[in-house]
């Protein structure tokens, strides 16, 4: 029964992890991140519908298309604002979200774009004593696979080491000869691609309409703030916490649920302003 919450947590994680890493790395308040998830979701759903791509192929397509689009935006626009004030970053990314929402509405209308899961993922799995939704299990497995892959990527690869170094101390990383601009672009592309995956994978129960970019933004931000900037595992646990909490509260406390989550977030942030798993510790 908790499974639904865990599955939702996985979606939150897949979308938010990119936001956490890019914000931690670049110090950029990117309120358009949910927009990238939305664009990716649209790309995936529409590619399946119109081009008849399979689910997995469509996910790969959505990842690549969104990553490519985000590189263009990053090089052309974001890069100009890395040293700007927080307010300018907030305004810019809100503007970008508005543009995304309006464009999608103009092109595809305001309605929800339903995702049709492949037959194999529909239905229930019978584990003998309980029945689970197959797709929830798939999401959980995917989420765990992604966190393990990201963790390994962070710990074991050169790129991961560079990102970690730059999150902890930008100037030091620069003096070590790390090409920060390139690092930013790559991370941004990966983060947006991940968001796209999350948008596609989550479309089945978060829905996918032009308001998506704003509707869930607060949740993504809460996950990042609680998990800590630039912390993959932190974001993972924060996403699980929020996902499960939200699911359980919706069931048992349908009225006060969101309020409880906000209260928990406030308390956590006051207690650990760098996030539960943040901070400069090694």
């Amino acid at each position: 029964m908790l499974l639904g919450g865990i599955a939702a947590g996985m979606i939150l994680f897949i979308v938010s992890v990119g936001l956490s890493v890019t914000m931690g790395l670049m110090g950029f308040v990117n309120l358009a991140h949910g927009g990238f998830a939305m664009l990716g979701g649209y790309a995936i759903v529409l590619a399946m519908k119109h081009w008849g791509l399979g689910f997995v192929t469509a996910l790969a397509f959505g990842f690549l298309a969104t990553a490519a689009a985000s590189v263009v935006l990053e090089r052309l626009l974001y890069a100009r604002l890395y040293r700007a004030t927080e307010l300018d970053q907030v305004l810019f990314t809100i503007g970008l979200v508005f543009i995304m929402i309006a464009s999608l509405t103009l092109r595809f209308g305001p309605e929800n774009q339903p995702l049709t899961l492949p037959r194999a993922l529909q239905g229930q799995i019978d584990l003998g004593f309980v029945q689970y939704r197959t797709y929830s299990l798939v999401l959980i497995v995917t989420g765990i696979a992604i966190v393990v892959a990201l963790w390994l990527g962070f710990e074991r690869t050169r790129l991961g080491a560079q990102i970690r170094a730059a999150v902890d101390n930008r100037r030091m990383a620069e003096s070590l000869g790390i090409n920060i601009a390139r690092l930013f672009t790559i991370t941004f592309a990966l983060g947006s691609g991940m968001a796209a995956l999350g948008g596609g994978l989550g479309a089945e129960f978060l829905g996918l309409d032009p308001q998506y970019a704003l509707k869930y933004l607060v949740y993504f931000l809460i996950v990042v703030a609680v998990g800590g900037l630039g912390r993959v595992t932190g974001v993972f646990f924060a996403a699980l916490l929020i996902g499960v909490l939200d699911f359980v509260l919706k069931k048992y406390l349908p009225q006060g649920g969101p309020m409880f989550i906000y209260a928990v977030t406030i308390v956590l942030l006051l207690w650990r302003p760098q996030g539960l798993f943040g901070g400069k510790a090694a």
Binding site: V218, L221, A225, M259, P273
Partner: peptide
């Protein structure tokens, strides 16, 4: 106001959302 940046942004946002939910309840 002891916090800065993203944390402050989130705290102001959540405080307002908390009040909104309280008003709803």
């Amino acid at each position: 106001l002891r916090t800065r940046g993203l944390t402050l942004l989130m705290l102001t946002l959540c405080t307002m959302a908390l009040l909104e939910e309280a008003g709803n309840l």
